[in-house]
Simulated assay, not measured.
Amino acid sequence: MANLPFGKEQLTQLRAFINMCRTNPKIIKTAELSFFREYLEELGAEIPEVAPTSGHGDGEMPSPTKESKKAEPQPEQDEPKVESEESDVELDMTGVVEPDKDESLPMGELGKEASEEDIEKSNEKKREAISAYAEGEYQKAVDLYTEAIILNSGSALLYAKRGQALLALGKPNACVRDCTHALEANPDCAAALKFRGRAHRLLGHWEEAASDLRDACKIDFDEQADEWLREVTPNARKLEEHRRKYERKRAERELQERLRRAKQAREEHAKASAASQQQQQQQGGGGGGGSPGFDFYSLLNDPDIVEAFKDPELAAAFRDISTNPANMVKYQNNPKVVAAMEKLTAKFSGAGLGGMGGMPFPGAGFPPGAGPTPPPPPSSSGDDVGLD
């Protein structure tokens, strides 16, 4: 060190600079350190090409190390592609159409009784509508069914048949409204269930379609309705399985959360119980003046106290009460213990200790009215317990 032209501090700085160059080689390529780079090249060192930092644009080629760092985040970018439990199920959407706009059509008043004349006229319009539908004149069929509905608004079949014509016009939403109205008039209208199920299928409502078509086949089996049911069943089952899986996982999460909260509550209860127990111990074994951890036995060198506790009964009682002040209740009918505790209270109070750790005995004291009235303080002779 003595032969070097610089001190220990400069040597430490040089070592730190070399370590920095190892971890960040592009420092050597800065203009300020060109003299150092030239010196290294004169010694035969090969300075590796390093990638330029963002915004510098010095045209240097990227190093393999930099390329590997760029490649590292790719797994994280792929993670969102993993399907979550709430993600959509892969369904066959072939044949699904764009929903039609709302179209207000006369619905009539359900439950309204029509006269025989109106019913006859309504049936005539219905026959004309059936002929128009058969000829492919679907809009004409809708108009005729509307006239029939106005004449006889309580017929569920008229709404279902108009729904069929609306379906042929590519208006599945309007069909759903008509068929739903029909089912309000007659919940067992198989035609309304059939055509509404088909409309739901065209809207991509797979579960609703399966439910309607299944019910329609139960009420009045129809080969076309059965074919439509088999068409929607695969997608409906996928959605049902997906929903059950999601609900099961949600139930598991809720159970785990309940268990976590229960565990947290137990831990908090245990902490509170431990703190309460510690506080009770400090109060039971604490010293005068409210100082935690006061040792009663450090004060038992008083000759009167020593003499008093030569009595095994008093010594045991004092030890029991010192452990837990609540145990004083066990001795409230023992005049000897009560009198001894009163004298001890006087001793400690006289010493400026402010009582004995909050122990509940007379004077510091028994609950009012608890136990027998303690005997009056003994005479100065201390014949009762030997506290002369």
Rank of each mutant, 00 (worst) to 15 (best):
L4R: 10
L4D: 05
P5D: 10
Q10S: 12
Q10T: 15
Q13K: 15
N19M: 14
M20P: 04
R22W: 07
K26Y: 14
K29E: 12
K29D: 15
T30W: 13
E32I: 13
S34M: 13
F35H: 10
E46I: 15
E46R: 15
A51Y: 08
M61V: 14
M61Q: 12
K66H: 15
K70W: 08
K70M: 10
E72Y: 12
P80M: 11
D88Y: 01
E90A: 13
L91F: 00
M93Q: 07
V96T: 02
K101V: 13
K101N: 11
P106I: 12
G108W: 00
G108H: 01
L110C: 15
L110G: 10
K112P: 08
A114E: 02
E116P: 03
E117R: 15
E117N: 05
I119Q: 12
I119G: 10
K121V: 05
K121N: 06
E124C: 10
A129H: 00
Y133M: 12
G136Y: 05
K140L: 08
A141Y: 11
A148V: 05
L151D: 01
N152Q: 09
N152K: 14
S153I: 11
A156K: 00
A156L: 01
L158Q: 04
L158N: 06
Y159K: 10
R162P: 01
G163M: 03
Q164G: 10
A168L: 03
P172F: 00
A174P: 01
C175W: 02
C179F: 02
H181N: 12
D188L: 12
A190S: 13
L193E: 00
F195G: 01
G197I: 02
A199N: 04
H200E: 00
H205Q: 09
W206T: 01
A210P: 00
R214F: 02
C217M: 02
C217K: 03
K218S: 08
F221W: 06
E227C: 13
R230E: 13
T233A: 01
A236N: 00
E240L: 08
R244L: 10
E247T: 05
K249W: 03
A251D: 08
E252S: 12
E252T: 13
R253K: 14
L259P: 06
L259E: 14
K263V: 13
A270S: 06
K271D: 07
S273C: 08
S273L: 11
A274N: 06
Q281H: 11
Q282M: 04
Q282F: 06
Q283P: 03
G284I: 10
G284R: 07
G285W: 08
G285I: 09
G286L: 03
G287V: 02
P292W: 00
G293H: 01
F296L: 14
L300M: 14
P303I: 03
D311F: 07
R319F: 14
D320N: 09
D320C: 08
I321M: 07
S322L: 15
T323I: 06
N327S: 13
K336N: 07
V338E: 02
A339G: 11
A339I: 11
A339S: 14
A340S: 06
E342F: 09
L344D: 02
A346S: 14
K347V: 09
F348D: 06
G350N: 10
G352H: 12
G352T: 04
G357A: 09
G358S: 07
G363W: 11
A364D: 07
F366P: 01
A370T: 10
P378M: 07
P378R: 14
S380K: 09
G382S: 04
L387F: 08
D388G: 11
